[in-house]
Nucleic acid binder design. Structure first.
Lengths: 226, 226
DNA sequence: GTTTAATAGATTGCGTACAATTTTTTAAGA
DNA sequence: TCTTAAAAAATTGTACGCAATCTATTAAAC
């Protein structure tokens, strides 16, 4: 979130904030002060304001009138709704990717798996979380339906947020090879297997959450800039 | 779109513009000049600008850098993607509504059907189109999943836009009783029938579009304020 | 008459300033 | 010491103004 030399468009600002949320650098509930962001990005508040309305529409940020913008703290019910939506949509994504992915698309998937492996190897936990989300965004992009792609581009960052709030602290970042298995099934055009693996993967993530317990209350200031 | 006395929030401005699009008062491709809108709504351009970025994120408006905002002209491919998405999502909506709708919810549905009938009786074509879209938004709201509700709140106005672009001119507004039949099946907790009727309804709408022909090119200035 | 260039006009992009509101700090009272 | 009240500081909401850009008009050249 450092100041940059080139002028940033509001979408880019929103994207940078989204990345920070996905990497758990901006924890749920934290206040996003406009002036601070303006300073950090080297633009005026006007642009920050537009980026924040964008993120609010996206659902990643909550706007309290006269009180400011806060990174969303999804409720347990929202978390359940989110996974229900993903269970509905992602099998369709898998179907479409199998039906229309070309070699280049498959190559991109492999390249992404490589990045994930690398992040795991170097123990870069933040990057692992973000890349795990972005794997599903990439799949959605390859499915060739702009509406579903856009939906997943909203649901994945929110999923990262939910993990930040409800994940058991000792849980390992993400199952090592579930993404690879899905890609493998896609390559083999094994629709049934790919869907089964996808649903298993989603249920796996959701099951490790503690949605019945109270969400983590306060912000971990110590590790915020760790 | 007349000037109002109370101060409008940007969401309200966006909603008013959305309604105008749904009623085909703002046709696809028309330019939305910031100053004009600011005058019409009695606010400064700053707020209009935020409303437009919101609508652009929603997909109802296209933003051309330095050239302004235009009501979107969805391509045939986007139209097909939209209906594919609706065919995926709306059966799930029907399932959820059947599972969890209370009497009050059913009453709201009947109330809406009444409004539609009234609009049909008075021949208010604009209102019919908007209400037809809003029926699906209401169903989505009753399904109890915030993400699906939000998705449908974007897809329905876009559907109106697609109808404006690709509908055969002589087509009657909307099949008279398909909405009522869906509500009836929901009331009877007949999931299979409700889903079948919903899919039939969607296919009916899509089939009446001329997605293979070139979209209507220019704006009907004569009927714009009719 | 058509094309090209130059000018004038309109519109968008964005920073800034100020009012309205909230939050924090300080002080007084119980 | 804990409440409550008042003042100060910080932050948001919004309009305004100017620079940058695009569009339309006019004039010139061919």
């Amino acid at each position: 979130m450092e100041a940059s030399t080139t002028k940033l468009a509001i979408e880019q600002i929103a994207e940078r904030i989204t990345d920070a949320v996905m990497e758990h650098r901006l924890p749920p509930g934290i206040k996003l002060v406009e002036e601070k962001l303006a300073g950090a990005f080297g633009v005026s508040r006007t642009k920050i304001r537009q980026a924040l309305t964008l993120l609010a529409k996206e659902g990643l940020v909550t706007l309290h009138p006269n009180r400011g913008a806060f990174v969303k703290r999804p409720s347990a019910e929202e978390a359940r709704d989110l996974f229900a939506t993903r269970r509905l949509v992602e099998p369709e994504i898998v179907r479409n990717v199998i039906a229309r992915a070309c070699e280049q698309d498959i190559a991109r998937l492999h390249q992404h798996l490589e990045e994930e492996a690398q992040a795991r190897a170097t123990g870069d936990r933040r990057r692992i979380i973000r890349l795990s989300g972005q794997f599903h965004m990439l799949l959605a992009a390859l499915a060739g339906n702009a509406f579903i792609e856009k939906l997943m581009a909203e649901l994945c960052p929110l999923t990262c947020l939910i993990i930040a709030l409800y994940d058991a602290p000792q849980t390992p970042a993400c199952p090592e090879d579930e993404h690879s298995q899905i890609v493998e099934a896609i390559e083999n055009h094994d629709e049934a297997a790919a869907i089964r693996l996808m649903l298993h993967h989603l249920e796996h993530i959701e099951s490790e959450l503690m949605l019945d317990a109270a969400p983590k209350l306060d912000i971990h200031w110590e590790t915020l800039y760790g």
